[in-house]
Amino acid sequence: MEKGNLHRWVEQLDTGMKYKRGLGIESTAHTFGVSIVDERGTILSNVKEVYKPPSGKGIHPREASRHHAEKAPKLIGDALKAAALAIDDMDFIAYSAGPGLGPCLRVGATLARALSVYYNKPIIPVHHGVGHIELGCLLTGSSDPVVLLLSGGHTMILVSGIRSWVVFGETLDLTLGQLIDQFGRAIGYSSPAGPSIEKLARDGKKYVTLPYVVKGNDLSFSGMLTSIKKELSRPYEDLAFSLQETAFAMVAEVSERALALTGKRELLVVGGVAANARLSEMLNHVADRQGAAIKPIPIAFAGDCGAQIAWPGILYNKAGISAKAEDAFVNQSWRIDRVSVPWRS
């Protein structure tokens, strides 16, 4: 008996005290997610609810934020329960501070501030895009990759800089996610329309010529959206097919440029659009041609989730960085290259 108790006590000391862990709250757009991660990079829990707008509509920030506020208490509870931990066991509370939709961001930030003040825990604002990248590096074991960040709000190629992520190339107007969503809306799908468009594109046969705009390492999609909206009399399958082929080829080309010019050997693809099978296929070719490895992210973590906030929280916590509750704001248009990332050099 005594021995058993001692053993349990030692185990508790080992797993319970030795490793730091924190709670991350993601609420930039459709998804409200909560996750607990420890400093070894073990994802102890990761739960989420996704707001689905009515068909043919985009996300309404107020409706989405209402959805998040309704689901939040239960999800916090679920995340703790799944990890078999109490909020008092957390070393910090991290939240997504931007970029994203103001009302949605504020739900997460308000909750994080309340938990931080009530339970006296450090609070850590995390950039949504940095979250995607760092979680991607953790899950794929990438060390110094060329990063293709394809979330709803970003279409960027990045490389690590001096204590920051540096933009190698990006869209000059719409993001890839916005292009797909806005086309989806025009033909009656709700956002995010990616999976529906992908499915539709599989039955596309005829390629419709669309503007292909690559400028240096930058991309532009606005012309493509305008021009596809003029072709809506054609079969939607062909349009979806042509949109994917053209837009993804542009992304593939700039990815290949980035690999060729930097000589890096890893290509990391993160963000919701990373789940698209056709894009993965193209990027595999690209990586092959340039002698680089492409490491897929588990689908569950490709889209928005709490773990992408909790893990950078760990990295900031280890670097001794946190915010004061009164400074824990949100920033709807937070540039990723302005974010301090002390663990990168």
Binding site: T28, E170, D173, T175
Partner: peptide, 10 residues
């Protein structure tokens, strides 16, 4: 130009 965040903000 709106490349930073999402442009769908109301």
């Amino acid at each position: 130009r709106g490349r930073y965040g999402r442009q769908l903000v109301d």
